[in-house]
Amino acid sequence: MIGDTSVLFQIAGIGIIVAMIHTILKQMGKEEYAQFVSLVGFIIVLLFVLNSISDLFQQIRAVFFLKG
């Protein structure tokens, strides 16, 4: 009843892969690309979390009559 937890695994997978790409690029001396990849991964995950936050806030507003 807790919704789908697969998003958690998805985000963990994204994190692991971003970390691997980061490590490889760093080893090859492409420091700036490595930073960029980290940033992109972070932003994508942040989008997921933002979705979830707005969900929660909508629900709280509906439950507690906090509209307006």
Binding site: S6, Q10, G13, I21, Q27, G29
Partner: peptide, 23 residues
């Protein structure tokens, strides 16, 4: 020597990344 191995693994990792995003 520098980029040969890297491009292989980066290709695979980017593929997995996109799949995870679309899942």
């Amino acid at each position: 020597h520098r980029y040969g191995k890297m491009s292989r693994s980066v290709g695979f990792l980017v593929g997995t990344f996109i799949v995870l995003l679309l899942l």
